[in-house]
Amino acid sequence: MNWQLQTAKNRLSEVVKAAKTQGMQIITVRGKAEVAMISLEDLRRMRRAGKPFGKSWWESAPKVDLAIERSRETGRDVDLR
């Protein structure tokens, strides 16, 4: 699942729980995937696999569609008279 940074900060406990129960959670900044949160158990499993950490992590990461749709809504009209 993808989380915008501000949402992840506000709902950190949910992000942590999701990483433990659903797998890797992607955190985006300005619509671009920047970091991933994984459970400690997933990290340990990857290290036991004996591969270099970066390669192990990348190969085991679920393939996700990182395309994010932004709202085209421009807000409300304001009468400044």
Rank of each mutant, 00 (worst) to 15 (best):
I38T: 00
I26Y: 05
R44C: 05
W3P: 02
S71L: 07
R44I: 08
L43W: 07
S13Q: 13
A8Q: 03
Q6M: 04
D42L: 12
W3T: 04
K20A: 11
A8C: 05
R47L: 15
M37P: 00
A61Y: 00
A33D: 06
E41D: 12
E73S: 15
L66A: 09
I27L: 09
D65N: 15
L40A: 13
K17F: 10
R70D: 13
S71V: 04
I38Q: 00
L12M: 13
R45Q: 15
E59W: 01
K17M: 09
R81F: 11
G75K: 07
D77Y: 15
V29G: 03
Q25I: 06
M46W: 06
I26K: 03
K55T: 10
L66V: 09
V15G: 06
F53A: 02
W3R: 12
T21F: 02
G23D: 05
V16L: 14
E41N: 09
V16S: 07
S56A: 15
K9E: 06
E41Q: 13
M1N: 10
W3E: 08
R44S: 11
K51P: 00
R76F: 15
E34V: 07
V64Y: 06
E73L: 15
D42M: 14
L66M: 11
I68Q: 06
K63W: 04
S60L: 02
Q25T: 03
E41G: 04
P62C: 05
L40C: 03
W57N: 03
Q22I: 02
I27F: 02
A49G: 11
G75W: 03
E59K: 05
R44N: 13
S60M: 03
R45A: 15
K51W: 05
E41C: 01
R30E: 14
G31F: 02
A8R: 02
K51Q: 10
N10D: 13
L40N: 05
E69P: 08
R44D: 13
A8E: 03
A36P: 01
D79Q: 07
R45V: 12
K20P: 00
L5S: 09
M1T: 14
P52A: 07
N10C: 05
D79M: 10
K17A: 14
S39W: 00
L5M: 08
A67C: 08
I68E: 09
N2V: 13
A61K: 11
E73T: 12
L12G: 09
P52F: 02
L43N: 06
E41K: 10
E73K: 12
R81D: 15
K51G: 02
N10M: 08
R45Y: 07
R45S: 15
Q22Y: 01
M46E: 08
L80F: 14
Q4K: 11
D42K: 11
G23W: 02
W58Y: 12
V15E: 03
R81K: 11
V29K: 15
E41S: 09
V64E: 14
R70S: 12
L12Y: 07
Q6A: 09
L40Y: 07
M24L: 12
A67S: 15
G50A: 04
S56V: 01
K55M: 04
M46P: 01
M24D: 08
M1H: 09
E59L: 12
V35E: 05
L43Q: 07
A33F: 01
W58N: 08
S39G: 04
R30P: 00
I27V: 15
G75E: 06
W57K: 02
A18C: 07
A33H: 01
W3S: 05
T7Y: 04
E41V: 10
K32P: 00
I38C: 00
R81Y: 08
K17T: 14
